[in-house]
Write a protein that binds this DNA or RNA. Structure first.
Lengths: 112, 112
DNA sequence: TTGACACATTCCGATATCGGAATACGATGA
DNA sequence: TCATCGTATTCCGATATCGGAATGTGTCAA
């Protein structure tokens, strides 16, 4: 047996630097493939392929207008990511809270 | 030329399912390598190797106690991730705000 | 000091992934 | 209808990455 992970999940999709650059480029709003190719300096096929991956995991969507394709972010699909990350921050805060409680108990103990 | 991305950044580190499982296992708190091996069912070398990667990007830290190693999360190092994700949510909200402004202007125009 | 234990590292083969080059495809304009 | 433009797809070689098996390393207990 060998590998197990695929490019078909959001976490993997944002693993690639160039794909993150493309997402960044789209923050400003809808853009043509050609525009992205210009903004970042990547080859057109490279951009198209990365857009395909991003598209498959739902992070971007595509709209045809004549012979060009306008890609845009699909912000709702960032939520799983955000929720995952926040979980850890949450765990951290919870632990800090428990620490606070503990310290307060200690302090109360001292004053008894 | 071929690849460019390495395993040496946080985004790549969380790209792997098993590494995410390990992180999840550590949410509860510090754990031994053996404990992780038991909790998830992965081989010990596999776990050790993933822990190494997670360690290199700073997501976990290690503490030696006798002949065992206790690994724990390093929540501060999740911040770059969170900030990156939140950026997109932010961009989304901003756009919604501008839309609101626009709609309000339209409405005011109607009433003049 | 020796053996067992907990873990890390190395070596390996299988496979996924990336980028480049060439090409295919569909829409448009002459 | 045909050439062109904008984009997608395919084919390819190079390389990164993963998991398994075997082995190395340090610590403890007897």
């Amino acid at each position: 047996m060998a590998r197990s992970s695929t490019t078909s999940d959001v976490f993997n999709a944002i693993g690639d630097v160039h794909r993150r650059e493309i997402l960044d480029a789209l923050i400003a709003g809808e853009k043509t493939v050609g525009a992205i190719v210009n903004d970042l300096s990547m080859s057109q096929p490279q951009v198209s392929k990365h857009l395909r991956v991003l598209s498959e995991v739902g992070l971007v969507k595509c709209r045809a207008e004549g012979r060009r394709r306008l890609y845009r972010l699909e912000p709702e699909h960032f939520r799983p990511l955000r929720e995952w990350v926040v979980k850890y921050e949450q765990a951290w805060n919870d632990r800090m809270d428990r620490l606070d409680d503990y310290l307060q108990e200690l302090q109360q103990g001292e004053h008894q």
